[in-house]
Nucleic acid binder design. Structure first.
Lengths: 170, 170
DNA sequence: GAAGGCATATGATCAAGATCATAAAGAACC
DNA sequence: GGTTCTTTATGATCTTGATCATATGCCTTC
């Protein structure tokens, strides 16, 4: 899996869910204006497209953003294991429940009007694990606004610039 | 259950999920600034707080916005039934999977920059089933901007004003 | 090493939504 | 009927983030 590779695109028929062995995959949707929106970032050990097990088509694009490898788990296998193994079933359901709550938290984050406060909340929530540009697309900000807000937070003393493109909570 | 009643608040210990028999309940979170954000609206027949089955505490407030009644389903009952009834288990899991996709779609909706386009998308997605004010809190707009955008869409001929506070797609 | 691409960074300008203010219609309550 | 509250609705002003422009550092690739 190389950077830029497309694992699947939205509206494609679902075949199963994926586990990231190494590298990084983002789930994103492309608006009518060509603007991309990051919905999820899966790194080593993470799963993605879990909800596809109950859907006929994928609802977003899966793009590799860091070379590595993934394993696919077929829909049928998941369903069969859910039937036969209650523990797996509960685990899988819990996984989705956690996602529901994460998305709710994310929607709440997006509702924060001020760019600075939004970024601070995002950093505190551990969203900022990649590039600033990536963070920006994740939290509905232009990357310029994102850089400026980070700069502002550093000026306020609420964050620290620890290197080029590297910031941390103070 | 009267209008304004609180079914539960965030951070309270979870006891189970709910089914709305009649009336309406909204799940909302209150920001540090006192601003409220609507995360979900459950009407007759709808469930809410499903994800709480796998969580120790509720992650938002449940407020009655229209008098009616609800039934509570205990966490333990859900878990037990999931163990013994694979069909129920799959159904419940599917419910959460659908929610995950709905939230993703909602996040995508929130990413639409233009107020008019965002509202149009929200109306097409069937979000506009209550008041304009309610819709506004649901899609991260001030209610003033919401009224104005609706007016603009009517002027454009893309929507129709069918009465005071009533609009429909043209 | 040269070239190209991407992330970083900042400045200037502009448009769009937030905010504040005001008012009228409708519903709820006494 | 009168009072109060909410929703609807619109106007004026202001802030803020989007957009456009530009430049540099870093990494990859040839």
């Amino acid at each position: 899996m190389q950077k830029g590779d497309v694992l699947f695109r939205q509206n494609q028929t679902t075949s199963g869910l994926y586990r990231v062995v190494s590298g990084c995959v983002t789930l994103q949707r492309t608006g009518m204006g060509g603007d991309t929106l990051t919905l999820h970032r899966a790194v080593s050990g993470g799963l993605f497209a879990e909800a596809s097990v109950f859907s006929a088509t994928y609802h977003c694009d899966a793009i590799c953003t860091e070379a590595g490898s993934v394993t696919k788990i077929a829909k049928a296998d998941v369903k069969a294991t859910m039937q036969s193994n209650p523990a797996f079933s509960e685990g899988f359901t819990r996984l989705l429940a956690v996602q529901v709550q994460q998305y709710r938290a994310h929607i709440e984050l997006l509702a924060i009007p001020s760019a600075k406060e939004r970024i601070l909340a995002a950093v505190q929530a551990g969203y900022f694990d990649a590039t600033v540009t990536e963070l920006a697309t994740h939290i509905n900000l232009s990357h310029e606004a994102c850089y400026r807000a980070l700069r502002g937070l550093c000026d306020d003393g609420r964050m620290l610039r620890v290197g080029r493109g590297k910031y941390s909570l103070s």
